[in-house]
């Protein structure tokens, strides 16, 4: 039973700008929450504040009701997996894992049992005698994970642990980590700027931009119902079109879409899979390029004023570059002043 409570945490570095800006989050017991955001959005800074490597300028961090805001990392019940270069290369795998237990003055026999159990858990049974430099990148990150897990932390923190690995390995480790996390039921905060990673692993996703929360929701909700234009544009592929609403219609170039909101500027969001295209004699857009992915196709369209749209189609062979087409949005959302004002 471990819950993490982050309340109104702000971090200002000496440079002046706020890296994290009054951020609040509750992570439930056994939950895996992903912090997702573009580079520089303050994800690492937030995670490092939870781990104790940075001091918040204001706000508080509580683990299981205990205020840890001002505790140094060595006295926090958190375990952190770093992006890379964090294994101690002068020790072998066993010693890397045993180090924390030795500091806790655990008997040698018990240490050996624990280390072997956790090596087994991460799929590295029998690797104890290897030097860390003799391991592949994926194995090294597994050792780093095991090193945190062996201490049975209340909160597991991972800062882009797979960033230096290739795509294939990343996908496999992602699944493994998720399995282990669920088996142990360990409360986890995971930083990534890969949306695939977040969508496939997380119980909930926190989308961050400029140190602030944009949206906190389940992955499917974040994808289907982004609450701000930033989230809409950041997660998945999205057509974001700025235009004007007049008399119940959104207008941009030749594109008009019925939109029952008060008059004024608005941003229309349409997923490529929700934008249908058909050949037309009275075209509103022209085909710029057709890409065939086998299972589906992607059609790039230009409105008369040059606005580029993407549409996912089942039969890309029906379209060719230069062709005039009509477009029909099926599901739309609209944003004004950074807030959702309409959703169909």
């Amino acid at each position: 039973m471990s819950v993490l409570h982050i309340a109104e945490v702000t971090k200002t570095f000496s440079a002046g700008a706020k890296a994290v800006d009054s951020f609040s989050l509750d992570v439930a017991d056994g939950e895996l929450v992903c912090l997702l955001g573009p580079s520089g959005s303050g994800k690492s800074t937030l995670l490092r504040m939870v781990g104790g490597f940075e001091q918040p300028t204001s706000g508080s961090i509580t683990i299981d009701g205990e205020d840890v805001t001002h505790l140094p990392p060595e006295r926090r019940p958190t375990g952190m997996v770093f992006q890379s270069h964090a294994l101690w290369t002068h020790m072998n795998v066993f010693k890397n894992l045993a180090f924390g237990l030795k500091l806790r003055r655990m008997p040698a026999a018990e240490i050996r049992d624990k280390v072997e159990a956790v090596l087994d858990l991460v799929g590295l049974a029998g690797y104890g005698d290897r030097m860390t430099t003799q391991l592949s990148g994926g194995q090294q990150q597994r050792v780093a994970l095991a090193r945190s897990l062996v201490l049975e932390p209340k909160i597991l923190l991972l800062d882009e642990p797979f960033a230096s690995l290739d795509q294939h390995l990343r996908e496999r480790l992602r699944e493994e980590v998720r399995d282990i996390q669920q088996r142990l039921g360990i409360t986890t905060l995971f930083v990534t700027h890969g949306q695939d990673e977040a969508l496939s692993m997380a119980d909930r996703i926190v989308v961050m931009a400029n140190g602030k929360t944009e949206q906190i929701d389940r992955p499917d909700v974040v994808y289907r119902d982004p609450k701000t234009p930033f989230v809409a544009g950041f997660i998945g592929s999205m057509n974001l079109i700025d235009g004007e609403v007049r008399n119940g219609y959104f207008m941009r170039s030749d594109l008009t879409v019925q939109l029952q909101v008060p008059d004024g500027p608005a941003t229309l969001a349409i997923r490529p899979e929700s934008l249908d295209v058909t050949a037309s004699d009275t075209p509103k857009a022209s085909v710029h390029r057709v890409t065939d992915y086998g299972s589906h196709g992607l059609v790039d369209l230009d409105l008369a004023d040059g606005t580029r749209l993407k549409s996912m189609v089942a039969h890309p062979d029906l379209f060719r570059a230069g062709q005039g087409v009509d477009v029909f949005p099926r599901a739309i959302a609209a944003y004004r002043d950074n807030q959702q004002i309409y959703r169909s």
Binding site: F53, P73, E74, F82, A86, W88, L103, L151
Partner: peptide, 27 residues
């Protein structure tokens, strides 16, 4: 000596002296 390897040592519970003795000195 990478910063992260020192932070990792603090994370598993080493104080400044232990970090120096077990992590920095051997390196």
């Amino acid at each position: 000596v990478a910063n992260q390897s020192i932070e990792a040592a603090r994370d598993v519970g080493a104080n400044a002296v232990q970090v120096f003795w077990h992590i920095i000195l051997p390196r």
